[in-house]
């Protein structure tokens, strides 16, 4: 039996008349890469915000890393990492300063921070650049650095919101290598993406349509289920039936 890291039961979020996330139920297991797909406005971001303890569900339950999103949002925040495409690091701090800052936020001791930051900078090959401002780095490097910092405190789960948008194909692959490495260290990865080839890299994929999870399986399983050659086709078949598109 695999250990469950995220588990939701009838999780719902409603804004007025609008049901952004409609009774979603799923489980994510430890050490897997879980792809969370859906068209714009299908309710992905809302669901992700609830799981990160940033917004309270209207009804239903969910536990993340063993904590309840309704009652223990602060505990959840300590045990997860988060990275989005738009903002993650302070552009006007150097690489080292960013690591120290976020390490401090997650309560690492100075000694731990010093060790981890040295290790991380070497691993990313940023030794020469460590005193450069993050704002001067190319996008791909920023995203790699930002992910490393998101998992600095060894969270149980890391949430990634379109981490590779606009990144060049080579760096995109290096980024996914990092995701695999992280899962080998027991970190669970929860990721959204618009690149369908990246959906193939996930262990399991869920596809949301109009607030509901319409499909959930391994990429191979989904392709068999929908009799499709690629994830792109699977997605197209599902999302074409969508009534609404975005907020």
């Amino acid at each position: 039996m695999r250990e469950t890291v995220i588990s939701t039961n009838q999780l719902t979020k409603q804004f007025g008349d609008f049901i952004a996330t409609n009774k979603i139920t799923f489980e994510v297991y430890k050490g897997e890469i879980f792809g969370f797909l859906g068209a714009n406005g299908a309710g992905k971001t809302t669901a992700m915000r609830m799981l990160c303890g940033l917004s309270k569900p209207s009804s239903g339950h969910a536990t993340v890393a063993g904590f309840d999103v309704n009652t223990q949002p602060e505990e959840i925040k300590k045990n997860i990492g988060y990275m989005s495409q738009k903002f993650s690091l302070y552009e006007d701090l150097t690489i080292t300063e960013n690591i120290e800052f976020f390490g401090g936020i997650y309560g690492l001791t100075n000694k731990q921070i010093a060790e981890k930051s040295k290790d991380l900078i070497e691993r990313l090959g940023l030794v020469k650049a460590k005193d450069q401002l993050v704002g001067s780095l190319p996008l791909g490097w920023k995203q790699k650095l930002s992910f490393s910092i998101a998992i600095l405190h060894q969270p149980k789960v890391v949430f990634l919101d379109e981490p590779t948008g606009g990144v060049d194909p080579v760096t995109r692959r290096q980024f996914w290598d990092m995701l695999y490495q992280a899962t080998e260290n027991g970190i669970t990865v929860f990721v959204t993406t618009h690149y369908m080839d990246e959906a193939e890299y996930c262990n399991r994929v869920s596809i949301m349509v109009d607030g509901k999870i319409e499909a959930l399986d391994s990429p191979d399983g989904l392709k068999k289920q929908f009799n499709a050659n690629s994830m792109d086709e699977v997605f197209y078949q599902l999302a074409r039936s969508a009534k609404r598109s975005d907020n």
């Binding site: 859906g38 068209a39 714009n40 618009h194 792109d232 997605f235 197209y236 999302a239 074409r240 969508a242």
Partner: peptide
């Protein structure tokens, strides 16, 4: 098409 889902892109 940046940030737009595959269906809308198509």
């Amino acid at each position: 098409t940046t940030g737009v889902d595959p269906v809308s892109r198509k």
